[in-house]
Amino acid sequence: MADRGFSVSRLPGFTPTAMLVFVALYLPILMLVAFSFNAGKSVASFEGFTLQWFVKAWANDHVKDATLRSLVIAVVAASVATVVATAAALGTTRRKAFKGQTFIYVVINQPLMVPEIVTAVALLIFFAQIKVLTGYQGLGYLVTAHAAFCIPFAYLPIRARLEGMDLTLESAAADLYASPWQTFRFVTLPLLLPGMIAGFMLAFVTSLDDVVITLFVKSAGQDTLPTYMLGQIRRQITTEVYAISTVLLGLTVVLLTAFFLLTRKKD
């Protein structure tokens, strides 16, 4: 480096440590991706490029089934979470602090604070009773559970967007003869949309990634992609699982990139 001056913010050993951390973070993931393209079965050596594991995974009915189920749950749960989180965000921001506001805030963020295993156990017990009472065994339980723990993930970016929104824009709309509904429809909602999309994406990824709660809530034959993958570990991790992981990883990167572009502050 040309800059040889005394840098106040430089601390000895910090940069090498950071570099090691980045390598350590990515090396295992990249290995996994690399070996999902490996022709040989062993992880120990790379024996040529192949897509056969992706093909095999896709040909596996269990995988297809679980993928479809994961997507259905994630789409429905994220949509529900986004809608209720938007309403809650509108209710809890930008008005004079009212009685119970902190309570609402704590309840909404509760899934972030309680260990997953505890929520999972609680839902297992609760839904077991309901299953006995109603006889219903469907996907509703998983969707309800996922929608609930997705709420804070949808809520936070929407709330952030609302708080960053200039309140005078709504005053301006009212000043220009817009009724409260017109103000919401023509000013608030279009400006809120990027936040809602961001919230939906975070909720979607969260739902898609969930293992523990799904494991406890699902009935027999309701495997999602992650619980299916976890089940495979008992029978030695197959390269097929790597292929699925690679696809999920790709999806995460795409969604995150979109998320960043959406929430990026304009310079």
Binding site: D166, S171, A172, A173, D175, Q182, F186, L191
Partner: peptide
């Protein structure tokens, strides 16, 4: 405010960022 025949020029202008100049004026 939406039922008062009074309009405001805001200190921060409060122009709608998702609308064009003409759409702002016609709002």
């Amino acid at each position: 405010p939406n039922r008062r025949p009074v309009n405001t020029v805001f200190q921060s202008y409060a122009l709608f960022p998702h609308l064009t100049v003409a759409q702002n004026i016609g709002f």
